[in-house]
């Protein structure tokens, strides 16, 4: 990670909390449709990051042991397994497939 990225991400991450809590929040609370849209942003962008971390190798799409691990995690999340079980399930599945 570069120095620029560490500084910019720190401002970007902590600053958005201040924006949400004190600047955008009071205004957003009076806009029900926008509030609903805003609450969906994490669903869209975090899923995109999950996709990128799961099937991308640079700019190529690959289906490897990672994908199997994340699929297992998906089933565990769906079955409402505890957080640590989800994470361990993914890691163990991926590691086992690689060890084969």
């Amino acid at each position: 990670m570069t120095t620029l990225s560490i500084i910019a991400l720190t401002i970007g991450v902590w600053g958005q909390r201040l924006l949400g809590g004190f600047v955008v929040g009071p205004w957003l609370e009076r806009q029900p449709t926008l509030t609903r849209a805003a609450k969906l942003i994490p669903a869209a962008v975090v899923t995109a990051v999950i996709v990128q971390l799961t099937v991308a190798d640079g700019r190529t799409l690959v289906a490897d042991a990672r994908l199997a691990g994340v699929l297992v995690a998906g089933v565990l999340v769906w079955r409402k397994a505890p957080f640590l079980v989800v994470v361990l399930g993914a890691a163990v599945t991926t590691a086992l497939l690689r060890a084969l």
Partner: peptide
């Protein structure tokens, strides 16, 4: 670290965090 499957930890963790919203 890929031998330990650590690269699958973060997508899995994010999935768990987003579980309720999804």
């Amino acid at each position: 670290t890929s031998r330990l499957g650590l690269d699958a930890v973060f997508p899995a963790a994010l999935l768990a965090i987003m579980g309720n919203l999804l």
